[in-house]
């Protein structure tokens, strides 16, 4: 078949069934999803996956000069494979399957690798944005594209994932980050995990999370306002709430020790020796920064869901 300059062979998303071998001329393929362009000269093949897997075309291919193409249909392929031994067909299937896996892996890995860059930019732009003001999607895209060369659709998918995790909200052309501190914590946790190959210190044990849930509940029940964001909870109130949060288990000073060490909780009496801890009833109250606890708990809610979301993809 022949194509005149400017004629389109097929459009991105079309369900083609044929393979084309360029005999003469030149064609150009453009992918709007990632902005990639491919040039096809004599000898080049176009539409391998359309022929082998009936997949939609990944790009719009246009003749940039008068071109001559050899068209290979699925019947041509069937006929050629019929003449080959049975094992050869298995090899073709294997090669096709492997290419599809490599494509899917590449797409997933691009998204996974882009996430830290997105969090870095989101943390920075949302911290500069007006309170309750959103960051324009275009500004986020420009910055993440400059930094990582992310594809527009990949960025949208990642933002959608973060929206599903309740980290942000997309409002028209703007992205509203609900809590920049949580974005920053998440970024720090991912960096730590990548560098040291172990669980980040911000990720709490189940017991610590249960204790902090009880602390949050106690603070919320308190009628006294916070002073400069600092809370103070009376030990009897905390013990009452912790029994429910910890499914009946009794709270002790030792249980609270890791949170005290991290300065998330501060005891109203000094704890000098870890060997000889005071009874919890001997400590009248505990205090700390309420926002830090809320942010950390939010991080601990998101963190395990994030990996799952990245691997499984968004809806």
């Amino acid at each position: 078949m022949t194509l005149e300059e400017g004629q389109v062979l097929f459009f991105e998303g079309d369900f083609g069934k044929n393979l084309y071998v360029v005999r003469n001329g030149e064609l150009c393929g453009t992918n709007t999803r990632n902005g990639d362009t491919n040039v096809y000269g004599p000898g080049a093949l176009i539409g391998e996956l359309s022929l082998l897997k009936n997949e939609p075309c990944s790009e719009t291919v246009t003749a940039t000069e008068d071109s001559e193409l050899q068209e290979i249909t699925s019947e041509n392929l069937e006929s050629a494979l019929e003449k080959s031994p049975a094992w050869f067909k298995s090899i073709m299937q294997f090669l096709t399957g492997r290419l599809a896996i490599a494509q899917s892996n590449k797409h997933k890995s691009d998204k996974i690798k882009a996430l830290p860059s997105l969090l870095y930019i989101l943390g920075s732009l949302s911290a500069k944005a007006d309170k309750d003001g959103g960051v324009p999607f275009s500004e986020i895209f420009d910055s993440v594209h400059n930094l990582f060369n992310i594809a527009r659709d990949d960025l949208k998918e990642l933002l959608q994932l973060l929206e599903e995790l309740d980290i942000l909200k997309m409002q028209g052309a703007d992205v509203l980050v609900k809590n920049p501190s949580v974005v920053h914590l998440l970024y720090e946790s991912i960096c730590f995990r990548a560098r040291y190959k172990k669980t980040p210190p911000q990720i709490l044990s189940m017991t610590d999370q249960m204790v902090l849930s009880a602390v949050i509940k106690t603070v919320q029940q308190n009628t006294e306002p916070l002073k400069n964001g600092m809370f103070s909870v009376a030990t009897p109130d905390l013990l009452k709430n912790s029994r429910k949060a910890m499914h009946g288990a009794t709270l002790t000073t030792r249980t609270l020790l890791s949170l005290i060490d991290r300065k998330l909780l501060n005891a109203s009496v000094s704890i000098d020796s870890k060997e000889k801890l005071p009874e919890i009833s001997e400590i009248p109250f505990f205090f700390g920064d309420f926002d830090s606890i809320l942010d950390l708990m939010e991080l601990n809610r998101i963190y395990p869901l994030l990996d799952k979301g990245l691997v499984e993809g968004t809806k």
Binding site: L19, G43, E48, Q70, I72, T96, N105
Partner: peptide, 24 residues
């Protein structure tokens, strides 16, 4: 024994897979 286009197809699939793995 294969037609040239089929040989080219096999090479192309192979090269694309290799390129994708490398670019990942």
């Amino acid at each position: 024994r294969l037609p040239l286009w089929l040989l080219a197809l096999i090479r192309s699939i192979s090269a694309k897979t290799h390129q994708l793995k490398r670019s990942a």
